[in-house]
Amino acid sequence: MEALLAVIILLMIAGSIYTLHARDLLSAVIAYGITGFGLVICFLLLKAPDLAIAQIVVEIITLIIMIAVIRISTREDLTEGATIKVEGVRYVNLRSAVYFVTGLLFVVGFLYFFVKSTLNLDPFGVHSARMAQVYLEQGVELTGSANLVAGVLFDFRAYDTLGEATILITAVVGILTVLRLKGRK
């Protein structure tokens, strides 16, 4: 189980690295699908079917919107200067050295905090959260919903759902505003 998940996540990492380095934007967007559909398989293996259904449809709609954007603009990545050039060893100037050291410090500090925080977590496959026990034992009696995810989503934590709906409507209003060509008279 753990090894299988590790292989899938490695595949996702490879797909995302190719996504960021592709010359053609269309192939970048399609390679991005490796990451998304790998995530779907991970969700299925981790016993989260609700998420798998949602993610697989969201992935397809994201793909459609991205292809629509690329169709009305350009397919080519920036030919020159698509990435920040790393200066050669011969021309180590102060600026690139500062960039490099800052980036390295950032990654090391990030890694430090990550390791500190994951050591406090339970190891993979062991879970001992107190709230989960309450939800699992009393969820069905209190909400009457056989699917506990729906019970949590619409009863125990309905405020989150309301906030999510609000964010969605705000995003729609924002997109309609940004994509309007002519101002309203």
Binding site: K47, A48, L51, A54, A132, Y135, L136, V152
Partner: peptide, 16 residues
Amino acid sequence: FVDPLPQAMVLTVIVI
């Protein structure tokens, strides 16, 4: 059972 709470939260995160 697996924990339903992260699943419910991530479900909203996907749509957002």
